[in-house]
């Protein structure tokens, strides 16, 4: 039973086709990178996958989808709203409980945000916001994570730490990435998109940087 199974899927906005006849099957445990030029349809494909299987999936959107007036703690805590009752959640909204803070602390530390735990997300830098969004996905846990350029604003060394954390937390990973080196290093399957079509679908192992360059040409 595959985790995702698209057959000849189409998608578009306002009558403009973004994806055409995309077929994609992703099995449990696979680590997939979606690569391609901007506008190739990566984000749309991710959204499509997410909408097919929301339960058990965590999403890291490109616009990090944070609540800007809430703290880093709260934004990460939101990853597990579904596990608690509404009253418990509201209590933590008004005043975070010690035990919840303790659960969030390791994630914050791993992402290098320990000093910003109670800073409103809107006051963080772009990279910090992105890490907070990753933190939410890490905290959520589940079997699949769908990330849209989750480290695009994070610098090199830290990007690797973040991707390590994602890889450790989730069995099945689908990431849209523009950094070809990172894609090759952290995933075992590369799906190349161009003009809304899948034009490449191969294991990472045999590929080199040069093989992917064609995706970025018109």
């Amino acid at each position: 039973m595959p985790i995702f199974d698209l057959k000849d899927a189409n998608a578009g906005y306002n009558g403009r086709a973004v994806l055409s006849n995309v077929s994609l099957r992703i099995e449990k445990g696979e680590r997939v990178a979606l690569v391609g030029r901007s506008g190739a349809g990566k984000s749309t494909l991710l959204t499509l996958l997410y909408s097919q299987r929301r339960r058990g999936s965590a999403l890291i959107p490109q616009d990090p989808g944070l609540v800007k007036t809430l703290s880093v703690f709260h934004n990460i805590f939101m990853g597990r709203l579904h596990r608690n009752g509404a009253w418990y959640n509201l209590r933590n909204l008004a005043r975070p409980m010690r035990r919840e803070i303790e659960k969030v602390e390791p994630i914050v530390a791993c992402l290098g945000l320990e000093d910003e735990m109670f800073t409103p997300a809107g006051e963080l830098s772009g990279g910090q916001q992105q890490r907070t969004a990753v933190g939410r996905a890490l905290y959520q846990q589940g079997d699949v994570v769908l990330g849209d350029e989750p480290v695009s604003a994070v610098d090199g060394h830290q990007a690797r730490t973040v991707l390590d954390a994602i890889a450790e937390a989730y069995e099945t990973v689908v990431l849209a990435m523009h950094d070809v080196d990172l894609a090759l290093a952290y995933t075992d399957r590369i799906v190349g998109l161009n003009g809304g079509r899948v034009v490449m679908d191969e294991p990472s192992a045999g590929l080199t940087r040069g093989d992917l360059d064609s995706l970025y040409q018109r």
Partner: peptide
């Protein structure tokens, strides 16, 4: 959109 499925409308609204 990014809230985990099943977060409940009350929690979703307030968070």
């Amino acid at each position: 959109d990014t809230l985990p499925a099943g977060s409940g409308i009350v929690s979703a609204f307030f968070f």
